Simulated scan of single mutants.
Amino acid sequence: MLYWHWLALGMALLMAELFMASFFVFWFGLGALLVGAVVWLDPNLDPALQLLGWSVSSGLMTLLWFRYLRPLMKDRTQAGNARAAVIGEAGRVLRPPHGDKRGRVRFTTPLLGDDEWEFICDGPVATGDRVYVKDFSGNTLIVEKRD
Rank of each mutant, 00 (worst) to 15 (best):
L72F: 03
L72T: 08
M73F: 11
M73R: 14
M73L: 14
D75V: 02
D75F: 01
R76W: 08
T77Y: 10
Q78I: 04
Q78S: 08
Q78M: 10
G80I: 08
G80T: 09
N81V: 06
R83K: 12
R83M: 08
A84R: 09
A84W: 00
A84I: 01
A84P: 01
A85C: 00
V86R: 14
I87H: 06
I87C: 10
I87T: 09
I87G: 05
G88Q: 07
G88C: 07
G88N: 05
E89P: 00
E89T: 08
E89I: 03
E89C: 11
G91R: 02
R92A: 13
V93Y: 07
V93Q: 06
L94K: 09
R95M: 08
R95W: 01
R95Q: 09
R95N: 01
P96H: 08
H98E: 12
H98L: 07
H98S: 09
H98I: 04
H98T: 05
G99A: 02
D100F: 03
K101D: 13
K101M: 09
K101C: 00
K101A: 13
R102N: 15
G103F: 03
G103P: 02
R104N: 00
R104K: 14
V105C: 09
V105I: 13
F107S: 01
T108K: 12
T109N: 10
P110V: 10
P110M: 10
L111S: 04
L112K: 07
G113K: 11
D114R: 15
D115E: 14
D115G: 05
E116D: 14
E116M: 14
W117A: 01
